[in-house]
Design a protein around this nucleic acid. Structure first.
Lengths: 155, 155
DNA sequence: GCCCCATTGATGATGCATCAACAATCTGTT
DNA sequence: AACAGATTGTTGATGCATCATCAATGGGGC
C-alpha cells in the first residue's frame, strides 16, 4: 500500500450517497406496494413476465435463469416456492430428460394480470412522474453508460 | 377495475429496465468486490463508517439503526453477527439500563481502514469515472428528486 | 410509592440469496 | 459399446432481512 487513495470529493460523495439512498428506498417502496396489492414479490413478477412472454408459457429452468439474470440455483429454489403457491408447475421435457420445464398456471397468469397495473402505476408514480422526459432520458443514458462499464470489466 | 391502466411507453419501459438492471448489477459487483478484498459486506461497511464517525466510536442500537436507515431488529441481529466476528462489542449504558451500546473494536477500525480505499476505488471505477461531471450532477439531481417524492408519499 | 405506557431492544420463525457439492443425462470420441 | 467431459438441475448449509412477539426499563401523573 504505497499508493494513496483518491478519495471522493464532496459533490462525488453526495451524488453517491443520494444515489444509493434513492435506490434502496425506491426498491423497498415498490416491492412493498406490489407485494401488498397483488401478493407477488418483484422477483415473482419478473419470472412470470418472462414466462408468459415465452411460447406456450414455459421455459427451461436454465433459460429462465438466463433471461432474468439469476443463478440457476436461485431459480431452482424460487421455482419450487412458486410451484408450492400454484403460480407455476414443473414439467418434464420429452426430448431431454435433464431439463425441467417451468410452466405458468392459470393462477400465475391471473396473479400477473393483477400485479401488472399495480406495478406499472408504482413505477410511474415513483420514477416516471417526478422526472421530466429529459431527465428520464438522461437517467436511461447514464444507466446504459454504467452498464457498458460493468460489461467491460469482469473484475 | 373500470379504469384502464396507463401502460409504459417504449422509452419509459426502456429507461426503467436499464435503470433496474444497472442498479442490480452495480450493487452486486460492488458488494462482491468489497467483500472479496476486505472481508466486509457493504452493510458492515456502512455500520462501521457511522460508528467510527460517532464520538468514542459508539452508538446506541436504535441510533445506529436510525443513521443507516434500518429497522432496529435488523440492526440487532447484524450487530450480533458483527460482534461474533470481533468487529464491534456490546456495552451496557450506565445512565439507562435499556440501551445497548455498540462500540467499534480495534479490529473493526482496521477492517474499515482496509475496506475504505477498496470501496472508494470501486465506486470511482464503477460509477464516477464512466460519467462526465455533468452526468454525475444530473444523477444526483434525479436521485434527490425521486427521494423527495418518496418522502412525500408514505403510501 | 405505584401504575400506565412509551421506549429500547432481543428473539424466533419464515422466506430469500449464495455457495459448494452432487446427481443425472447427453454428446462426442475411440 | 464404453468412457470422458460437458450440460442441466437439485440439494443442504449458511447468512441475511423482515415480521410479530416478548421482556425489561424509564418517566410522568396520581
Amino acid at each position: 500500500m504505497t499508493e494513496t487513495t483518491h478519495w471522493l470529493s464532496e459533490p462525488e460523495q453526495h451524488a453517491w450517497r443520494s444515489f444509493v439512498r434513492m435506490q434502496e428506498r425506491l426498491a423497498g417502496r415498490l416491492g412493498r406496494r406490489v407485494q401488498a396489492e397483488s401478493g407477488l414479490s418483484v422477483a415473482d413478477y419478473g419470472v412470470l413476465v418472462h414466462l408468459t412472454e415465452a411460447p406456450e408459457g414455459r421455459l427451461r429452468v436454465l433459460e429462465l435463469a438466463r433471461v432474468v439474470e439469476w443463478e440457476k440455483s436461485r431459480m431452482s429454489h424460487h421455482v419450487n416456492r412458486m410451484a408450492k403457491r400454484g403460480l407455476v408447475v414443473r414439467e418434464d421435457c420429452p426430448a431431454d430428460a435433464r431439463v425441467a420445464l417451468v410452466c405458468v398456471t392459470a393462477a400465475g397468469r391471473e396473479a400477473l394480470a393483477t400485479a401488472a397495473p399495480c406495478h406499472v402505476e408504482a413505477v410511474r408514480h415513483l420514477l416516471i412522474d417526478p422526472l421530466s422526459p429529459a431527465e428520464l432520458a438522461m437517467l436511461a443514458q447514464v444507466s446504459n453508460r454504467i452498464l457498458e462499464e460493468l460489461d467491460k470489466g469482469c473484475d
